[in-house]
Design a protein around this nucleic acid. Sequence first.
DNA 1: CCCCAGGCCGCGC
DNA 2: GCGCGGCATGGG
Length: 218
Amino acid sequence: MPEKNCSQKDVKNILMEIYHLLLKHFGKQNWWPVVNKKNKRFEIIVGAILTQNTSWKNVEKAIKNLYENNAFSRKAILEMPIEKLAEIIKPSGYYKQKARKLKEIAKLKGRITRKRLLSVWGIGKETCDAILLYAYDIPVFVIDAYTQRIFSRLGFKKLDYDSLQKLFEENIPKDIEIYKEYHALLDELAKNYCKKIPICEKCPISIFCEYGRNNLKK
DNA sequence: CCCCAGGCCGCGC
DNA sequence: GCGCGGCATGGG
């Protein structure tokens, strides 16, 4: 569908139609879930790191452990021995690496910019952009493996992080609520339908999908 | 037993 | 600049 003869206007319409179909199907997602509202920003930063290639269920356990050990602050994380921090966040997996990542991000102070975040060890593009969008309300569109899988099946050609991010940012309204919801909805779609082995029959956006049409033909 | 989960780093080429 | 192995727990 986003083949050669697809105008900029078509892309805009398609992206927004997909958004509305997903919203209608799954409802509002209200990402990012937070335990302690007073600690919202830092919780999102920590959660973004802990959830790297890890299910949110496991992250919730680690977050709970941090609170129960009175360890959910930059100060506590900086002062704690790294081995102890690792034990506390163990359920989130990759716990030795992630303990180091938490200490690295806790060290960062002053103005937050994309460039500065990306320079922190353990923060790649997705984690960086999730932090900017969900913790700081800065309008950057977050791309993840799910988004890439979905748009690959839809028929889009350029799927690397920067190209996909550009596609969204140039074709949907620059609105943090839409950015937040859209990313969350794509996640929901990937988990429920556009899985590794997809379930196209009930997919809410199959009408736009190259892969889905071929898959449903027979 | 297998595969997967809201990635990222370090390495070799 | 890209591909690949390593990192690790918990759930289906």
